[in-house]
Design a protein around this nucleic acid. Structure first.
Lengths: 340, 340
DNA sequence: TTGAAAGCGCTAACAA
DNA sequence: TTGTTAGCGCTTTCAA
């Protein structure tokens, strides 16, 4: 990494000299300002191409205070991100929207203790114009850093603080987790199911998981604990959970899984155990990710969230400007397929 | 994103004034240079903390020409990255190694046509000290850009060019795809299997897929085309491929899947069709990713590559300096579990 | 051990 | 429409 031929890289000065104009004129051409004679523009463009000139962003940034880059920070200790299409879909939405504003999304991961500090430095160092943050652990350095720098930030999912209170002053976008869960469980009840189990997310760590469980309890306040099994939003976790539920309550006739990925794991176990879906056991998921919900056997009845749109929304919120940070809760709706 | 309170952010000058020393001294403290009086260091540190001063990277970068950031560019049109633990594992290795050098990994995605140009601009703009690139499509702008800028770059997987030739002057790290595939198929042959099918990756787009298929053909030059089914490195694709193979050749007694993820999809179909593994059909995968290979039923016999180490290697190569770019092919070995 | 001064490559008034 | 000039915030000689 030492071999970078910096001395060789042409500067705006080189372009100016070679085209016989001033630095400012070259700058104007680069930035597409209107008041430059067409032939001069042409001439300068030519020289830029010849020289292979690329503007030095550090220099530009130093004066404009803009980078045209936005960080997306994922604080996920495990590799869940890479196994759930949910995040992919969200990220795609973010990227598309940022692209509309000419900004580049750069993804940063936090999965070890020191990553936290390094990412904070990166964000603080002015490499980006703003940040979109997911699943940040409460009270981390990042919150402080962001608050101090006044770095525009939008959270994915309602940020959780130590005291359970919401971070003040930061915008967030979230789905209606509790309402969605209620819709799901209501549906199972209306189907006449009487032993409705749930496979939850890691509700002690993730707000969304806690809310989906709360929605389940809203509808079934008297559900016995034996029908609730905690998993971790992974497919494997759901396989273990479904197995445990079936061992404990062989007579269960419905399952609400807190994500589509977990629902697909549950289906696998149900098939292996010879349960027919939905005849013997009805299954409802959450998210409505086409890759999963339309591909399972049978296709999944699930709570729809427009995940891609949620991503776009986050990016849009970032650009919204000095207005007070506004947060959005996106509504959900039940999509009926064949599993319930 | 307009509300950034830049005027408010303290500069090195503010710190200097407040601590009654010069800018240079503050700079020395920040950069941990030895020749500063201990009490001065203490004093300056204090002021930095009070003011919440964070160095402006753009300014620093302008003079040092270093960013301490490295881009990891993933050119994947589909969302395969997010469904295969392979990439997660690789990325973790890269991050760990970069962290050892105090560098931050920033991940960039390319999945639409214009992403290509934006990423090229980002890389060219000097936001990073180097780049690690995956699955770049032949002859893209990125190759030119990287070549022109002299941006240190390492490729993951042997870069493919239009003419099938290797990119000159760029280092790469790759697994021994062909050799590994040979090991897998040899093993199946040694088991006495006579109708050995293969589920391939997208061999027209990915060098690794082409090589794994070549390895299969090395061992079975006379395998009928009906035993070869092309998939795309996804689980779903493998499900479809396995189904097609079984329909066409109900008597097949072994399958070599070109990735663990695809092997797991194949297993699912085999189970559903009532085939016993390995008694009726032996299955071998590729990668040896613990999350998959140890979790399937039965656990997967597969070709092991040290994916995390490959990641670290890429990062290390990037820092190797002005020596001629050296590429590495990492050996593979067969890991026997229960599926073959 | 410290400070003064120059300059990294660019943009943005301000003049012309 | 174009050029001149003054910084942006930092590091880095060079002197002291």
């Amino acid at each position: 990494m030492t071999r970078r031929p910096h001395g060789q890289r042409p500067t705006i000065e080189d372009v100016a000299r070679r085209s016989g104009v001033s630095r400012s004129t070259v700058s104007r051409v680069i930035n597409g300002e209107p008041k430059v004679r067409a032939e001069v523009v042409e001439q300068v463009r030519q020289v830029i191409a010849e020289l292979g000139y690329v503007p030095n962003q550090a220099a530009r940034q130093l004066v404009t205070h803009r980078t045209n880059a936005v960080a997306v920070v994922a604080d996920q200790p495990d590799n869940r991100l890479f196994l759930d299409p949910y995040f992919d879909c969200l990220l795609r939405g973010i990227r598309r929207e940022l692209a509309c504003h000419g900004a580049q999304a750069v993804l940063l991961f936090i999965d070890e203790p020191d990553d936290h500090a390094r990412v904070a430095d990166y964000l603080g160092g002015g490499h980006v114009d703003g940040a979109i943050l997911f699943s940040l652990h409460p009270g981390g350095r990042l919150h402080d850093m962001i608050a101090r720098l006044g770095l525009p930030a939008v959270f994915g999912g309602r940020p959780l603080l130590r005291d359970g209170d919401t971070v003040r002053g930061h915008a967030y976008v979230d789905g209606d987790n509790r309402g969605g869960a209620r819709q799901a469980v209501h549906h199972l009840v209306s189907l006449g199911r009487e032993h409705i189990a749930t496979i939850t997310g890691p509700y002690d760590q993730e707000q969304s998981a806690a809310e989906r469980l709360a929605g389940y309890r809203d509808v079934l306040p008297d559900a016995p604990p034996a029908l609730v099994e905690r998993a971790d939003y992974t497919r494997q976790g759901a396989v273990a959970a479904m197995t445990a539920l079936l061992d404990r309550r062989p007579g269960l006739d419905a399952v609400f899984a807190a994500s589509d990925l977990m629902a697909s794991g549950a289906l696998e176990v149900l098939h292996a155990r010879g349960r027919r879906v939905p005849e013997d056991v009805a299954v409802v998921g959450f998210d409505d990710l086409a890759e999963i919900a339309e591909a399972t056997d049978p296709p999944l009845t699930t709570v729809h969230q427009d995940v891609g749109e949620m991503g776009r929304l986050m990016a849009r919120l970032l650009f919204e400007g000095p207005a007070e940070p506004s947060s959005v809760v996106v509504p959900t709706r039940l999509v009926l397929r064949d599993s319930a």
